[in-house]
Design a protein around this nucleic acid. Structure first.
Lengths: 289, 289
DNA sequence: CCTTCATTTGTACCGCTTGTATAAAAGTTA
DNA sequence: TAACTTTTATACAAGCGGTACAAATGAAGG
């Protein structure tokens, strides 16, 4: 991604942390980053899309750190999980992810909402899998419930612990306490057999293929959305773009010759305008081959 | 309260449920309720204050129901608690309280935020007290932690249970399951002795006097805010109003003769404009005497 | 019936918002 | 130098929350 664009994302994130999403106007961002309005709307089709870009980089960063902390460690050691969670909570706080998330989740557009929901489910699945590393087989049927409740407990405990002890308090004891509660609860559940949700439902919510390809799918979607705007009254043009999106997402394997010829037939819109889309598709199909 | 105003609150609430707070414009409300803009701003000094009025009536209603469900019942029966919570969660869902709450909590003005925070703490204290009814003495030091975690568990469990079983699913099993988890956790905590927050901190967060008077304080505050706007360049006038607010809230007992004479000295602003404030203060001081 | 008062209405207006449009300027590459 | 893409500056549209105010309406009492 463009360096300048990355810089805008970073600066805007800073503004959102300081003043909140709603209370930061695009003009604020333009002033703070020194770009012009035209450039802004060249980079992002809307303020929401900028926010999505911020979430995306934050999620990515979190996932990387999470994985890095696990290499060479004993996966079944609860202390490692605690440290991972602690780190996540800290960076979440630094990046103001939760407040930004809440601020937008219940109000904003469908696309953003869906993106955040999937992010949510992914972290839920991560917790589920890490709990599976730690506990023995008998607990596994209850791990989804446990992961769900762990999130709830952590959220509330941290919020009120920081209210009591100041926002700069060390959260390690809270995370440790919360994880211990859940581990004890799991023992009890494995005996009593009570359960709310079967773990299999996770696969239903997050079909493996869909989540692997999520990033690619959103990229394709936004590239195509941008193209659509170039000639949004040309019905044939729009149909072609819709066809490409559907073919690349739904058909397995996508028929590359079809996509290529359709793209070729749109060349009149400007070779360079199509470059991004072409590159995305070529990379993806190469990787599959 | 004015019937018409109440009607506006109700209709606006309906709109907020359907479209969200941010996505409902004042014009929408005017069209839907059939009042004019002038009347709207006669009733509410801002869109936020309308939202506060909605929250206030919803909280009030919830509290009443909560108390009504307890009369003539065995306070130590967990089933009653479960039914209370279940009812609360249902009405919360019907009134879309949580989403409206979240939508606004992280973005909006300080006053609204503080009001919601206090509402939050009040329901936390309610849960704390109800858990005290149910559990024996040995658990009491851990009840605040339990109340906090109960909220987290309920929130997450309900959210995902409804995602799995459809939004119209019966939530009784979820509430029952969640309360049981907490009760078991309490047993364990009373043995291990682990604790995050001491219950005494609740009194610090919600000083008894302050919460009793909260409703009165906000009423006084908004009445005075409204008056301030009538002559907002008259410094002496503003100082008088500030004095009244401070005297009625902070001085114990408030020196009525002082307040009365100050109000008298402001009569030039219009007798009727001061009526609301006068009535509020008279009622309060009568009740104390 | 008429006067007095408060409420309500309709409308114009302000400053701000997100987002579009576009011609001119600046940068890049060959 | 020429052809191109990107960036800039600016004007613009439509909508927002909120203010101001004259005119209309309603209610109460002499």
């Amino acid at each position: 991604m463009n360096d300048r664009k990355q810089h805008v994302i970073k600066k805007a994130h800073q503004l959102f942390i300081d003043k909140g999403f709603q209370n930061t106007s695009i003009q604020d961002i333009l002033d703070f980053t020194g770009i012009s309005k035209g450039t802004f709307y060249n980079y992002f089709s809307s303020k929401n899309e900028l926010l999505m870009a911020i979430f995306k980089t934050a999620f990515q960063q979190m996932e990387n750190n999470r994985n890095a902390m696990l290499v060479g460690q004993d996966h079944s050691d609860p202390e490692i999980l605690i440290k991972q969670i602690e780190f996540q909570m800290k960076t979440n706080r630094e990046n103001n992810i939760i407040p930004l998330f809440e601020e937008v989740f219940y109000s904003s557009d469908h696309e953003l909402k869906q993106y955040l929901e999937i992010g949510n489910l992914k972290t839920l699945r991560w917790a589920y899998e890490r709990l599976a590393d730690i506990t023995d087989e008998s607990c596994h049927p209850y791990l989804l419930d446990a992961a769900i409740m762990l999130r709830g407990i952590l959220q509330q405990n941290i919020r009120l612990y920081l209210k009591a002890n100041g926002v700069n308090a060390e959260i390690h004891p809270v995370v440790s306490y919360s994880v211990n509660r859940i581990l004890n609860m799991l023992k009890e559940l494995s005996i009593s057999g009570e359960r709310l949700l079967p773990p299999e439902i996770l696969d239903q919510w997050l079909p493996a293929s869909r989540t692997e390809d999520l990033d690619f799918r959103t990229k394709i979607h936004s590239a195509i959305s941008r193209l659509k705007k170039l000639d949004c009254d040309n019905n044939e043009f729009l149909q072609k773009l819709d066809f490409i999106e559907e073919e690349i997402i739904k058909t397995e394997p996508p028929r590359k010759f079809l996509i290529d010829s359709v793209i070729l037939s749109m060349a009149n819109i400007g070779e360079n305008k199509l470059a991004e889309l072409k590159e995305l598709i070529d990379d993806k199909l190469l990787e599959k081959a």
